[in-house]
Design a binder for these strands. Structure first.
Lengths: 223, 223
DNA sequence: TACGCCATCCTATCACTGATAGGTTACTAG
DNA sequence: CTAGTAACCTATCAGTGATAGGATGGCGTA
């Protein structure tokens, strides 16, 4: 029995050769260097995926040695989590902006849903890290501060759901169930589009519009 | 600046020591050995995750050398894809069984939805491989036969949606949009539950019931 | 029964990965 | 001017997926 190997892409232009180390290295203060690393890592993760981006690629792009990364992040996973945290802080602020914007209630829900979907598709790498990554299956993770921004973003979303419900724009029932179910419906589309971009989706824009319309009708008050 | 490393779990009982090689090795025919490998890999993937399972762990569990795996699968990814394919064949047959079962139309839709969710949560590892894994972001994958069972399962699902729509049990509109949106709604819940089992979901059973009810109401014909 | 093929399986080794150990350098407070 | 320390380095580790090439045993055929 013989299996033919698919020839590996990226042969001539190896990712590991991405941006040779800068000739002159400037020392940076911890916080600045940390931001520097996150910026380059974000770009690389988006291009090559997380598993496809090595710590050496990141270090080369930044212009420091690979072990120097570990002065700022305990592990590669911690770096990814920090990126996710950064992205979710911006999601939370996005939700906050929509909540405080002067938008009448029904349109506010739609704005929230479309904002969420747009965020997920834009920040694909960070969104994957937060919601689609394979974590330890049986091991209960000790408190991880990098998950917090995601939780806060959800909490903010849940608060808005509670408000809309109180105002009578959303169906009755458990607010937690409502928020989680609504979140799941939004997430489902984002996750599938991100995980299977090669699927014959047809017109993606139209598909999103269709799904949003269904969601709005499903969760709004029938009264 | 000093970062404290989280101490690595699995220290004393390293996963790599999982099941020492069997003393007496029996030669198996290609197809049998292949099934053997898939069975052990499935168990290990579920326990340690895909990235957390090395090819050496799989080989040790099976009782063969690590390079011997490559006589049956070109890459570790190919092995994972084969597992996914096997699982999705069973999903397709599940859908087929529900379709041909003697269930009146509205209950048939609910049976389909609950069957799908149950499958996803049971076959977590395979489901992840098929729908939640990080793939190449910019590279268009050449035809991959292991994706076929997943596509066929979706096609079967879409056919049933078309039928229910023709019978007047589902709302009007593009059948493709309807099937994709419905799939996304189901997937969203499964994906979140699998990716974030540590989230404070509350009563998961009740949450699933709530979501299914919403989906049924959302996609059924309002007439 | 004897032969030879070839699928099965092995050991040895590769390049690369994430991570660690321990020394060097440059900025800065006193 | 002189510590002290944060920033950074080189060298190296064990483990990973994958490859090269040789050993072996069962089976069809002469």
């Amino acid at each position: 029995m013989t299996i033919y190997r698919k020839k590996s892409a990226q042969q001539s232009t190896s990712p590991s050769a991405d941006a040779p180390r800068a000739a002159i290295v400037h020392r940076l203060k911890g916080a600045d260097r940390r931001e520097d690393i996150l910026n380059h890592a974000s770009r690389l993760f988006l291009t090559y995926g997380i598993a496809g981006t090595s710590t050496r690629m990141i270090a080369n792009a930044v212009g420091i040695s690979q072990p120097s990364l570990y002065a700022h992040f305990a592990t590669k996973e911690a770096l990814a989590n920090a990126l996710s945290a950064r992205a979710f802080s911006s999601l939370e602020s996005l939700i906050g902006r929509i909540r405080t914007a002067d938008i009448p209630a029904p349109a506010r829900l739609e704005a929230m849903i479309r904002g969420y979907i747009g965020f997920a598709l834009d920040q694909g790498a960070a969104y994957r890290i937060a919601f689609m990554l394979e974590g330890p299956m049986h091991e209960v993770e000790a408190f991880n501060p990098d998950i917090l921004p995601g939780m806060q973003a959800f909490a903010s979303f849940r608060d808005e759901v509670a408000l809309l419900q109180q105002e009578g724009h959303l169906r009755e029932g458990s607010t937690d169930h409502l928020a989680q179910s609504l979140w799941a419906s939004m997430h489902g589309l984002c996750a599938l589009l991100l995980a299977r971009p090669d699927f014959p989706w047809g017109d993606v824009e139209a598909m999103i519009d269709f799904h949003v319309e269904i969601i709005l009708a499903a969760y709004q008050n029938k009264a």
